[in-house]
Computed example of a mutant assay.
Amino acid sequence: MSTQPRLHFYRDPGEFLAAAGDHLAADPVVSTVVTTIAHRLSSRQADGIALPDRDWWLVVRDAGGSVVGAGMRAAPFAPYPPFLLPMPDEAAVALAAALHERGEEVRAVNGALPAAERCAAELARLGGGRVQVGQHTRLHELGELVPPAPAPGRLQVATEDDLELVTDWFGAFMGDADEQAGRPRGASAHEVPDRAELLLRLRAGRLWFWVDEAGQRVHLTGANPPSFGVARVGPVYTPPAQRGRGWASNAVAEVSRLIRAEGARVCLYTDQANPTSNKIYAALGFRPVVDMANLVIVR
């Protein structure tokens, strides 16, 4: 009997959640990206919105049938990198072989280490090329919230009337994050959510401004709806002219309190190359959980 992990691919995120739900729920902070996207796309599918043919969801089982890993390929931005959760090394290598055999073009792999590294290295070996680190990220969970020094102003939920400003700030957030980490603008494999996605977030009340005493919007913080009892904060964006005034610390603290009032745990990602944001979140009480990376396969 083979002891090799078995890979099960799903096209339907709902079927994936049914198969892997217990495994994902056992470590909901680590699985936050996969579960959040799976629940979101499952809801879209239920509303009659077709998902791209390229999307897939992965469950890894051991010889006894227990789920020991998971992943997905559901990124809406090129080069559509798979996102891997922790899994045995041999499963990550087997996944690379399976994708190569399926003829899928994979030019980047994101997710938990070392699984993403193992998969990317094998893909490079099979298809030629070398692996470069696009971005090192770290997932944190909030422990005891440490209140920041108070800043003037208050949190205010964003509405549909704020769509244009929210769109602009989402785009600026991506580029500024690259610059602050010493990368060229646009280097990170992300794109601004489309209008429909941002409208859904606004209607759900999951985006907030910090407004100063004059009522000016000076900062934006977002959060995903809770998935398996965990809500992920992001983006966290302050325009350059407003930085250094405590807006971000106060906004993230307030949003974290709101999430906890819902009964959910709070997590967020940081870019390991950005010491400023890492320092801010550590001061609020966020503690590292797992290191992840965005890896690029250069041919």
Rank of each mutant, 00 (worst) to 15 (best):
M72T: 09
I280R: 03
Q180K: 10
L126K: 05
V290D: 13
A121V: 11
S66E: 12
L51Y: 01
G103D: 12
H39N: 11
L41D: 12
L24H: 05
W247C: 12
A19W: 04
W208G: 15
S31V: 08
A264S: 15
A273M: 10
G175F: 15
A96E: 03
N110R: 01
P76K: 02
R54A: 09
A261M: 10
D89W: 03
Q135N: 09
V192K: 05
R217F: 14
Q242K: 11
G65M: 06
Y80S: 13
S43K: 01
M174L: 14
R73S: 10
G111P: 00
A196F: 07
E144G: 04
Q4W: 10
V236I: 14
A26P: 15
G14Q: 03
A158V: 13
M87Q: 01
A46G: 09
G215S: 13
I297G: 07
P52G: 03
V296H: 07
G263N: 09
A158M: 15
D27Q: 06
G71R: 00
L165C: 02
L58S: 09
T221N: 10
R61I: 14
A97R: 05
A20T: 09
V166S: 03
T36R: 01
G143Q: 12
D55Y: 15
S66M: 05
A112S: 13
L41Y: 06
A75W: 03
A177F: 14
V29F: 00
I49D: 06
A204M: 01
D55G: 06
P13K: 04
R203Y: 04
A26C: 13
L163G: 04
C267F: 08
G234T: 01
T270L: 11
A63R: 00
R44V: 00
E141T: 13
